[in-house]
Design a protein around this nucleic acid. Sequence first.
DNA 1: GCAGGATAGTTACTTTGGTAACTGTCCATT
DNA 2: AATGGACAGTTACCAAAGTAACTATCCTGC
Lengths: 151, 151
Amino acid sequence: MATLALESFLPYRLNRLASVVSLKFRAVYGPHHDLTVPEWRVLATLAQFGTMTAKAIGAHSAMHKTKVSRAVRALEERRWLVRSRSELDRREEGLTLTAAGLRSYAEIVPRALAFEAALLAELGPHAAPLLTALERMEAGLLDDAPRPERR
Amino acid sequence: MATLALESFLPYRLNRLASVVSLKFRAVYGPHHDLTVPEWRVLATLAQFGTMTAKAIGAHSAMHKTKVSRAVRALEERRWLVRSRSELDRREEGLTLTAAGLRSYAEIVPRALAFEAALLAELGPHAAPLLTALERMEAGLLDDAPRPERR
DNA sequence: GCAGGATAGTTACTTTGGTAACTGTCCATT
DNA sequence: AATGGACAGTTACCAAAGTAACTATCCTGC
């Protein structure tokens, strides 16, 4: 009978790796700011692009709109972002980081980059090929894929 | 101010890739057998090693004991495995796949392997370096890491 | 200008997963 | 052989995430 070794099965390995990396990464911002992953993604996206709508955040950070909605509310309660109803289309609202939000972001970014650099350093010469392979997989899977957040 | 582009940030990319791969992989066994990921892992581990305890399954498949417990119950209800209390240590129970369980496994494995092969084929020459890099990251992270399933 | 479909975002409901507490068993020390 | 700690596994409780239904607004065609 054909068999399969779970520990060398690619989907399993990718999942395990991603969850360990996520967990370790939480240690980077968790202790200081107690953010969830969705909240971090919203923060990072807004800092990257400035004012934008919830929908645009979701598209850029691969999150379902309910996840975005809840993360936005959490950040709003923390006074890290403000909403402003668009005049042109009153269904949308522009989301903008406050000074406090930007300040926290500025604190987290160097640590996030250091964390990433440490990951890559551990890979040494294997880092570049990994990134290339990642790009290939993303190109193949993300485009036509039934992404959870695709609509 | 230092900034960070989420779409090229490694933890984000790993998570997104893993979740897309997982989702696509579910299509391999989902429609025919309606398994969850934890159930699939328990099935695969038992098929790989024969009779073993829930604890051992968890250790091998990187799952928390409650997740294992629930997956085992689900497979038991489906009559895909049976339990037998160990005589030597009556806290443990040996878990063994039934003929029905093995049959389902045998149906799934070729499709799982084909799915993995398709993923790797998409990578072409980048496949080998990816696997090497994965091993490196696993070696660095999984050993000393605060794995979710670690005590 | 209004009827119907589409769209942005929220909320209700359900499923899933983790933490912590519990049960039953084992084992080491006394 | 009694007691206390460790350990396998389950369960109760809570937090996170997805689906579907809802609200409010927009836009198109009549």
